[in-house]
Amino acid sequence: MGEEREVLGKIIQILKPMVPEDTEITPETDLATDLSIDSLKSMEILAQIEDTFDISIPINVLAEVRTVEDLATQIKKLI
């Protein structure tokens, strides 16, 4: 549980500078509709996550990712 929270926290830290300052990011936040993350931004975000955790994220898994929590779940599987 602690590890999951840590992953979630790091992802939120990476997302924050990519969205308007007053945007609240929770595990339930929808990456596309709530944060308007386009394909260019998403590449940048994924690259930062990969560097942070020293992993490679296959884009195949992104089809299952809608929320911040979904993303954290997939990252946890790759660590």
């Binding site: 590449m43 690259a47 990969e50 020293d54 994220i57 296959p58 195949n60």
Partner: peptide
């Protein structure tokens, strides 16, 4: 398994290949 590298970005490609 599919991975993208940034368009024509050799640094990004090498980082991915190395991992």
């Amino acid at each position: 398994e599919m991975f993208r590298f940034k368009h024509n970005n050799m640094e990004d490609l090498e980082k991915r290949l190395s991992r």
